[in-house]
Nucleic acid binder design. Structure first.
Lengths: 226, 226
DNA sequence: TTCCGAAGTTGACGGCGTGTCATCGATGGG
DNA sequence: CCCATCGATGACACGCCGTCAACTTCGGAA
């Protein structure tokens, strides 16, 4: 999307023209302001105007970078997803046992969340009472990576033949919901405790899961395509 | 659309004054229109004006019943929560074993979701790509009921002494996430399969959970009160 | 039956956020 | 040094928001 790979010929690698630099700077300006304002007002109450007002830019400029506040939010979430997905995948690929697979997944996730003081915590702490969770396509892609890795682990005999789709959903649900509870508890965040809990739950649980030999009906995840 | 029912005195017992009847009717009119419009446009894109336009009422009337579209949404969600909470609680109170507790919880929940063609499915099927989940106070109260019941079960020796808060979060996370996957799969909804999966996971998992004798740090759920 | 105060509905209005676009200043290749 | 192009700017037209004075309807009292 953005990127420094403008690949001029043999140029030194970071000194783009002023045009490109301002572009990156403005985008960053908007994203930082958005994080700030989302945290202050909550996602729902925030307007595009609130965001640009927290910026030296003019209102029209916003629309050169994003179509709406939703898109800004997605960009922020996608940032996080793109940071954490490779780490998770690396850990899972290394796993040779169920224990390693599950434990690495949860440890990585909860450590990341506990360390992340910018995105996760602030944005989810919405004003008033209602909670909101929004999964962007990039995040959903992370879920599907997890499912694929589970399917591969089953094929390799690391996992018993369970319903990979449901297992993925269960892991995701537990990860997010416990992360929320962990964040609610007083500082400092005890990521290892959260990881230990979730890991134990699944290690014990997976053994007990129904072995779906043929995965009846589990193959047809209705693709989003309407 | 009314008229000859003017007969007041000798009528059956539920015929309140016209004032009260219209009030109920208007509220219902708005809620039904909202369900409709949310399903059509998605929650985010819907405006209060869209809702009243799907109604014979004037825009000002809306605000005699709700403060905002958020409040309408909450009312819809709360309806669902208030329907399902007593059922869940009844089932859990009857439980004499871990197995009964977990199994009843998931069966009740997934059956409810599978049967509910009005609220759950339509509203959650937001346009485009992003998914949204919003928990109203009434829903959150349901979560806390579950936690209380777990705590009671621990005290009664039905459950091992685990972290009730995390266990509640895990159950909630799995329930919602698997419900979503179940809804994505092709008709008909296989609630028993979903319930079987989730139940097995937790039955196996709870045995393996760390026995938090003193629940270090688990006592201080930061209350929402700011 | 008639009357009147209270309850509730109506839609126009001022204020604000939205997304667009003509204008203009800055940039950088020739 | 010049000027074509890129992108920032902010005014504008439009629509939604929440309010409120005027009006309609209801129902109790005489």
């Amino acid at each position: 999307m953005d990127s420094q790979l403008a690949a001029k010929p043999a140029s030194s690698y970071a000194v783009q023209g002023k045009r490109e630099r301002t572009k990156i700077q403005n985008r960053t300006l908007i994203l930082d302001a958005a994080r700030q304002v989302f945290a202050e007002l909550g996602y729902g109450a925030t307007t595009v105007r609130d965001i640009i007002r927290a910026t030296p830019l003019a209102s029209g400029t916003f629309y050169n970078y994003f179509k709406s506040k939703e898109e800004v939010y997605q960009a922020i979430r996608d940032d996080v997803a793109l940071q954490i997905r490779p780490r998770l995948r690396d850990e899972r690929i290394k796993a040779r046992t169920v224990e390693e697979f599950i434990s690495a997944t949860f440890r990585t996730f909860f450590e990341f969340v506990a360390d992340d003081h910018v995105n996760f915590r602030n944005i989810r702490h919405i004003a008033d009472v209602t909670r909101v969770r929004m999964d962007t396509p990039e995040v959903i892609a992370g879920f599907e990576e997890l499912r694929e890795d589970i399917e591969k682990a089953i094929k390799d005999g690391v996992f018993p033949p369970v319903d990979a789709d449901f297992l993925m959903a269960a892991i995701v649900g537990v990860a997010f919901e416990i992360a929320e509870r962990m964040a609610l508890r007083s500082e400092p965040r005890d990521a290892p405790a959260a990881a230990a809990f979730a890991t134990a739950l699944f290690l014990g649980g997976i053994k007990a899961l129904p072995h779906s030999a043929g995965l009846p009906g589990a193959r047809d995840w209705a693709r989003g395509s309407a």
